[in-house]
């Protein structure tokens, strides 16, 4: 299944909320007869409803997997981190308070787990000589254009890349990104502009040629 819901065009100023208090981006509106919102489902989870958690899992399994999959090279590791994030949500459900969008809450947990994974992996690589997990072969994607995009994104600086990906793929508002990464709002905007400008230049430049079946080096992947 393609992650088509995350592919969008920066076109509409009305389609996206501008603040975290705007719940219109929650999966469902609070209309009579309509399915419950994410926050309502999470409160039900905090009361012990397994059905509500199942619904949340179905809604966010693929977006959260995409979040990890674009940031780690090993698909099974991305699955594992996704599962770990949902488990963390489940374990912390009794302490959940609907002070923010569930979506932001979930990605904040995922981002912390990702940082922890990166820290542990860097520690292992530094002190134990352990190498990162197996890289996904390029033939798996099968699309040269996609590979070029991944390489171009991988050449951005770490923070610029993170801001860009949170905006483009996770559809986060500037405010959500600033809260998640702990950056000022203007810094988020500046970095996003810089990342997009740099990415435009990288995509316009000819991509380095790779042999078929050659693994992508970690430096070239996000």
């Amino acid at each position: 299944m393609q992650d088509a819901s995350r592919a969008f065009v920066l076109d509409s100023e009305a389609a996206h909320p501008t603040t975290m208090n705007d719940t219109s981006r929650s999966a469902n509106a609070e209309t009579p007869g309509a399915p419950e919102t994410d926050e309502q489902l999470m409160e039900a989870v905090s009361r012990g409803s397994s059905d509500a958690f199942t619904v949340l899992f179905q809604r966010y399994k693929q977006p959260l997997f995409g979040f990890f999959r674009r940031r780690v090279t090993d698909p099974s590791l991305a699955e594992e981190l996704t599962q770990e994030s949902f488990l963390a949500v489940l374990r912390a459900s009794s302490r959940y308070k609907a002070s923010a969008l569930f979506r932001t809450y979930l990605y904040a947990i995922g981002y912390k787990i990702l940082r922890t994974h990166r820290r542990k992996a860097a520690f292992r690589a530094t002190f134990l000589g352990a190498q990162p997990g197996p890289h996904e072969p390029t033939v798996e994607s099968g699309i040269a254009a996609e590979l070029a995009i991944r390489q171009a994104v991988g050449r951005l600086t770490h923070l610029d890349r993170e801001v860009l990906m949170l905006r483009e793929f996770e559809e986060m508002s500037y405010l959500e990104i600033s809260q998640l990464l702990g950056l000022p709002l203007n810094t988020v905007r500046t970095r996003l502009y810089r990342a997009r400008t740099a990415l435009r230049g990288l995509l316009a430049a000819p991509a380095p040629q790779l042999n078929s079946g050659q693994a992508v080096s970690p430096e070239e992947l996000p």
């Binding site: 299944m1 393609q2 992650d3 088509a4 995350r6 592919a7 969008f8 065009v9 920066l10 076109d11 958690f53 199942t54 899992f57 179905q58 399994k61 693929q62 997997f65 995409g66 999959r69 674009r70 698909p75 699955e79 996704t82 599962q83 949902f86 488990l87 489940l90 699309i143 254009a145 996609e146 995009i149 991944r150 994104v153 483009e168 793929f169 997009r196 990415l199 435009r200 995509l203």
Partner: peptide, 24 residues
Amino acid sequence: FRATSKSLSRWTVAEARFKLEDFV
């Protein structure tokens, strides 16, 4: 800007294979 974002949309991710029952 629109073109850059549109090109990013080509970066797709395969479907997650795991299920809720696998780990919960």
